[in-house]
Design a protein around this nucleic acid. Structure first.
Lengths: 230, 230
DNA sequence: TCAAAAGTGTTGGATCTACACCCATGG
DNA sequence: CCATGGGTGTAGATCCAACACTTTTGA
């Protein structure tokens, strides 16, 4: 081995928590209370503790900063950001995570952050602290691809949802319209994507829609592809 | 913020370097010279230095342990492995990388490792130190998916290759036969996958095959899918 | 002329897109 | 009975697996 100057570093988790809300794709954003970047917007996150596994740190930080319980939510590693100067406090390596959840009321913010709130991705893009803009963009792009190849979209929905709800998720995350009639068939004919509950939901106007729950499948075969190729 | 016991940790890079050689998918494996796991097989890797970016550390370690120059090779992060007890020396978090390269003669092993060598993935599976079996399996599975969706396969080939060479890569990495006639058309008709050099290579027996170079595209649209779905 | 590998033509089936059309409900 | 959203039928285009067949070389 060469010189033994391998560093002792701090390692952090950052969370890109996404939901579909009020007709747009939104991310959970905190306003930083401390330096560096005090007063600026950032993704929730924090340092990993001694003897703490990385997913556990992500779950803990999300609870501390937003009051959310990751128990039933989709949590997925989506990159390591380790440039030496990415944090002015010194060397910090961050493991970014993508979290997807339905539009639930936010519990009151916990001790750590002076307010976590949903903000439309399109509004905050370009204004985040650290390298969080890059993390956000890469996480959103990953979510878009995941909708093509996996059943991730159901994670944006409440436990019971209609095909229309699911289609809205695709339209908002992809930012393009999806044909309701063909989409309905694709979803229902894809083994394990959704399972009917047998019940229906009556909309304010129009025909009642069948309700579904998430199915057992995780990958979509065949995939559901966006129109533009990519 | 809560208690400030966030740890100072060591961070390492591990490298899953893959090639197609002698009719099988092979990985670059070292025999460990030091404890822990002295004498056992492992993936190349080592600690990240102070002020060193993570990809730079991967490139440096590969050079030190194998003499290879990553300059023109495919290098891709493929996961973070951070369980508290994964390394008996203490808390070490590893960023795993997938490297893909053609079957080139290995430079003489450098200072660090007493011998890096190609070993068929199927032979070493289950026998690696640390959690490297898991890293290897996940990296190989990622490579398999990458062949479906990207032009990664050309990275297994020398600068000039035939469609047959490329097909062999698919067959060996996927572990299943691919129809030569349909494959040829798919590759040639996919914009930007390969570009003809205008020259040919004459095999020991049979009709000469046109030679190609890597094209400009990185993603395959449409994808080239395996038979079994997944 | 034969073996071997490269490459083309073609066909039937699967799948997707686009859109016409029908269904079920509240006002 | 009308507006609204849910859902089905279907024709045409497109894509793809399978395989017969042709091409081009060395021996």
């Amino acid at each position: 081995m060469t010189t033994r100057d391998h560093a002792l570093l701090r390692i952090a988790v950052d969370l890109c928590v996404l939901t579909v809300r009020e007709g747009s794709l939104q991310a959970l954003i905190i306003t930083r209370g401390n330096e560096p970047f005090a007063g600026r917007l950032a993704l929730p996150g924090g340092f990993v503790r001694t003897d703490e596994d990385i997913p556990d740190a992500a779950i803990r930080e999300l609870g501390e900063e937003t009051g959310l319980d990751l128990g039933r939510l989709h949590l997925e590693q989506c990159g390591v950001y380790g440039e030496p100067d990415r944090d002015p406090r010194g060397r910090v390596i961050s493991v970014a995570h993508l979290v997807v959840m339905p539009d639930l009321p936010l519990p009151v913010a916990g001790s750590d952050a002076s307010g976590a709130a949903w903000r439309p991705v399109d509004e905050i893009r370009g204004g985040l602290a650290f390298d969080h803009d890059r993390i956000l963009n890469e996480a959103v792009e990953r979510a878009r691809r995941r909708l093509e190849l996996t059943t991730l979209a159901t994670r944006f929905c409440l436990p019971e949802f209609t095909i229309g709800d699911l289609r809205t998720v695709y339209e908002i995350v992809w930012g393009e319209p999806v044909d309701p009639r063909n989409f309905s068939r694709k979803v229902v004919n894809t083994e394990g994507f959704v399972q009917p509950t047998g019940t229906k939901r009556v909309p304010p106007t129009g025909r009642p829609a069948a309700l579904y729950r998430t199915g057992a499948a995780t990958t979509l075969n065949p995939p559901i592809l966006r129109a533009g190729g990519h």
